[in-house]
Each structure stands twice: as structure tokens, then as C-alpha cells.
């Protein structure tokens, strides 16, 4: 557990300053900055194409950036000390289709010196215990996502970055996963979860609303509703967009 879990003001786990990313000559992120507190669940929301995945890849250090800095747990993103402490679950399940669920999770577990029984525990935690011996290629989309998630959970990361982890999942499983995210955060882990569905936003401690490569909000769900005078977050998001368009 991170040492700062008991501190009265939570430490910053992720610090992004003036991050600029271009892809194919086009700006994808236009000088974005934010602070993400340790032991929190932060929702990264925005329509598809808004730059969510690019932002996430910059945090885990797999994205080439043009300028700006990204620091995770006090180290530049993607540097060696972070590779044992940060886990990344990609949008399309990054697992081996020709291996079983168990072999996939056991492989990623072994890279971190974790045992097969710990792998089995992670598989149970994502509700895949009954499918442990199935080939990943034969799983449904949601089952692949959960297997990919188990490969990340097994290493008990201090920072867990998830790109649209709940797409296409059964509502019951979605509920269970969000409960797990909350538990992990309570134990001191920092979670960044991207989503394009607004109904998940209320489960987050803080929201980053990304649109056309800029954050149009960086606030708690309650404050966001209050400042926009709206009842739900979907309306709050719309309100912010209209305000911006008026300003232009």
C-alpha cells in the first residue's frame, strides 16, 4: 500500500503539465494539465475521438509526446521504476488469443514474480473462474476485457489505468467491477478510468471532461452539477459545451 494512503491531504499520484500530443500531423491533445490525487478514482470522459486513449497512453508512457511533462508517482511516465507499479488495461483486450484465460493471467503474473494461485485469485475477482481453462479466442468481448483486467489486477498496481473497461459488459458485472475499483482506491491505489458513458461518471471522485483535445472540466461530480446548475452530468457536459461554443 502506498505510504501516503493515510495522509490528510492526499498526495498527487499523477501530474500532467502542458501536455501536447500530435498524431499524423494533427493536434490530439492541446496543452492539457491536471493533478490526480492518490487513492482516488478519476473518470476520463469524452466522446470517442476526443483524445482519451492518447491521454491514457501518455500516462503509461507508450505515447510519443510533443511537449509537456507527465509524472506518475514522482517519476517521468513510462520509466523503469514505474513498470512494476503501474498497470494499463487497453481498450481492446491485450491478451493472447491462443492461450487460455489462466495461461494469460499466469504469464503476466509471472512477469512480476506472482504465483499461479495469485493469478487464479485475480481470475475469480473478475468473475472468470468458470472460464479459466477456455482459450481467450473463444471468449465474448466482455469476457476478454475481464481477462485483460485480471492480468492487470494480479500485480496489485499502485496506479491502474483503464481504457473503457466496461464497454459491452453485463450491468451486474459492471456494478461489481466498479465496486472493485472503489475498494482498490480505498486501499490506496489510484485509478484513472476512461468512459464515454455518462452514467459511470457519478461513481468517480473526480471527473476530467475531454473534448477536442482539451479539458473542459476538471472537478468533482457534485461541484460540476452545482457550477452548471444541472441535475445530471450529461446535462452538465452539454452545458459546458454550449458555453464554450458561445464564447467562440
Amino acid at each position: 500500500m502506498p505510504p501516503n494512503a493515510t495522509a490528510s491531504t492526499p498526495a498527487t499520484a499523477i501530474a500532467v503539465d502542458d501536455l501536447v500530443v500530435h498524431r499524423g500531423g494533427q493536434p490530439v491533445l492541446n496543452s492539457v494539465s491536471t493533478r490526480i490525487a492518490a487513492g482516488s478514482v478519476t473518470g476520463l470522459l469524452g466522446p470517442s475521438g476526443s483524445g482519451k486513449t492518447t491521454f491514457i497512453r501518455a500516462i503509461v508512457g507508450t505515447q510519443k509526446v510533443r511537449s509537456g511533462t507527465v509524472e506518475v508517482l514522482g517519476h517521468p511516465a513510462g520509466t523503469k521504476p514505474l513498470r512494476r507499479r503501474v498497470a494499463y488495461v487497453t481498450q481492446d483486450a491485450s491478451i493472447y488469443p491462443d492461450l487460455s484465460v489462466k495461461a494469460n493471467v499466469a504469464y503476466f503474473a509471472a512477469l512480476y514474480g506472482r504465483s499461479r494461485s495469485e493469478a487464479m485469485t485475480a481470475i475469480e475477482r473478475v468473475g472468470m473462474g468458470d472460464h479459466a481453462h477456455k482459450l481467450a479466442a473463444n471468449l465474448s468481448g466482455g469476457q476478454k476485457t475481464r481477462t485483460s483486467l485480471a492480468c492487470a489486477l494480479v500485480i496489485e498496481p499502485e496506479v491502474l489505468v483503464l481504457d473503457e473497461p466496461t464497454v459491452g459488459l453485463d450491468p451486474v458485472i459492471r456494478e461489481e467491477l466498479w465496486d472493485q475499483f472503489r475498494t482498490l482506491a480505498k486501499q490506496g491505489a489510484t485509478l484513472l478510468v476512461s468512459s464515454h458513458v455518462m452514467d459511470e461518471a457519478d461513481r468517480c471522485d473526480r471527473l476530467l471532461l475531454l473534448r477536442e483535445g482539451r479539458f473542459i472540466a476538471d472537478d468533482t461530480p457534485a461541484d460540476l452539477r452545482a457550477s452548471t446548475g444541472t441535475a445530471n452530468l450529461e446535462a452538465a457536459f452539454l452545458h459546458l459545451i454550449r458555453e464554450l461554443e458561445k464564447a467562440n
Partner: peptide, 13 residues
């Protein structure tokens, strides 16, 4: 292309 290389590059591999 399957994304596993990118994933491995975020691990101690």
C-alpha cells in the same frame, strides 16, 4: 497489432 507488445512494454519485460 494485437496490443500485447504495447502492454509488455509497460511491464518489467
Amino acid at each position: 497489432t494485437g496490443g500485447t507488445l504495447e502492454r509488455l512494454m509497460t511491464t518489467p519485460t
